[in-house]
Design a protein around this nucleic acid. Structure first.
Lengths: 248, 248
DNA sequence: CCTTGACCCTCACGTAGCGTCAGGGTGTAG
DNA sequence: CTACACCCTGACGCTACGTGAGGGTCAAGG
């Protein structure tokens, strides 16, 4: 079954001009053209368009999307699972905006002063966009680690793997303590240094974001849960405590 | 309490460049400048910025936002209530996207073919943007009715009011019937013609959207409920039936 | 066959809303 | 004084299309 541009436009909710543009930049090309030059899209074209639209919805630029989709190891199913998770977080953001409205109204009704900070909760979308980019390797940090990785030998990788496992094991063994316990902080600090030395320059801000990923990214969550039940949440708290102490 | 650009940027989650831009176009201006030229924002500036960000979140352009905020009768509280409702609908959209992912995955897992239409549910944002514009009078139709209204006299307005009330009353009196009942359709048709004659060129598509507003916009819902409990939903169904019949 | 209307094409100008950078001033703590 | 964080204005550039011009294609109906 083939679709012309109007059919695809109606189906997908994008303009014909957008489809022309995506064809022109090689992002979503129709499988064929009629003799008259009409574009005819097939099912796999629609699959790709769907992916484009999800990535776009999550804040990626078109060139970024193209790079991701063209990876030889791109896996559609894996991507959909990711989209699902990230969209859930986007929904959280809207809920935060809704609550900001409610809090603002409360402040107006009851004559009490609500902090201005409350008014703006949810507007800053960078956290969510950063999360999406972390997942797909579109951060400056990822690029830096790629460059370093290019220089690693097999032995290097084995050493890195052992070191990382060792640190995580240590943290897991301390998971019954307070996240702010000095030994916990020391172990988390080793992780921070490990990343800085082996992968990329990792600011406290970024490290804190990685801590959050332990809870919000199912790949990390699963891995950490296998090490020890409850570890994701503990790790996040421990990283947060470490970052707060290091900043002071 | 005064805030400089960095403070506002951190508070509201917008860039300093954005604040410069908003000042330059007169959208959000700081209440004063220091002798060195630093911008100092006050509470009411932040209130306005909050409104700008909500409208922007809902898809309005900056010029549109300015026009709305500068109306003498702009009411902050009324606006917040609207934002609340519209954001709830935006959340619905994200939920639709999430379900589209789920349905796509189901189709892949079970080897059954899911219609391509399902893949794209939620991507078309025009419905939501149109809804927001309807509320704030930023549609071509609204502009047309404004022009016509300029030519109406007091007597015209009275006649229009009576006519509209009469039509709505008729529809309400038929609300116990099937929405596709011929008499219902005739009454709804009178409303359609009324709008075309008195306000603006109203396509079936647009009229259908107005029917939806009876349910989704609390102002219409309240008014219609007062006429008769359950009328909003009935009206929506009746308009939908009328539009379907008229298209055939 | 002609007409009409919906759909298709390419080309190309223009834009909204900033991001980024250059170059230089201001305020505060050590 | 130095260093650092913050501030200013000016201005180039960019992404992702929207819009319009001008013209071809397809299919149904007269």
């Amino acid at each position: 079954m083939a679709y012309t541009v109007k059919a695809v436009s109606d189906l997908a909710g994008v303009s014909i001009r957008t489809l022309h543009h995506y064809d022109a930049i090689g992002l979503v090309r129709p499988r064929e053209r009629t003799e008259a030059g009409y574009r005819l899209y097939g099912r796999s074209d629609l699959e790709r368009l769907q992916q484009v639209l999800f990535f776009k919805e999550l804040g990626f630029g078109l060139e970024e999307i193209r790079e991701i989709l063209d990876r030889p190891d791109f896996d559609r199913r894996r991507a959909l699972l990711d989209h699902h998770e990230l969209l859930t977080h986007r929904k959280d953001r809207i809920e935060r905006l809704i609550r900001a409205v409610e809090r603002t109204l409360e402040g107006m009704e009851e004559g009490k002063t609500v902090e201005e900070r409350v008014w703006f909760d949810g507007f800053d979308a960078t956290q969510y966009e950063e999360e999406a980019r972390q997942r797909w390797g579109h951060t400056a940090a990822y690029k830096e680690s790629r460059e370093r990785a290019a220089a690693y030998s097999q032995a290097d990788w084995e050493a890195i793997g052992s070191e990382q496992t060792s640190i995580l094991r240590d943290i897991a063994s301390l998971a019954d303590r307070d996240p702010a316990d000095p030994e916990v902080l020391a172990a988390v600090g080793r992780m921070h240094r490990f990343i800085n030395e082996r992968f990329y320059t990792c600011s406290l801000e970024m490290f804190r974001g990685l801590g959050d990923l332990a809870v919000s990214d199912s790949r990390f969550t699963e891995t950490y849960e296998k090490l020890r039940p409850g570890l994701p949440a503990f790790y996040k708290e421990a990283v947060a405590a470490y970052c707060a102490r290091s900043r002071a």
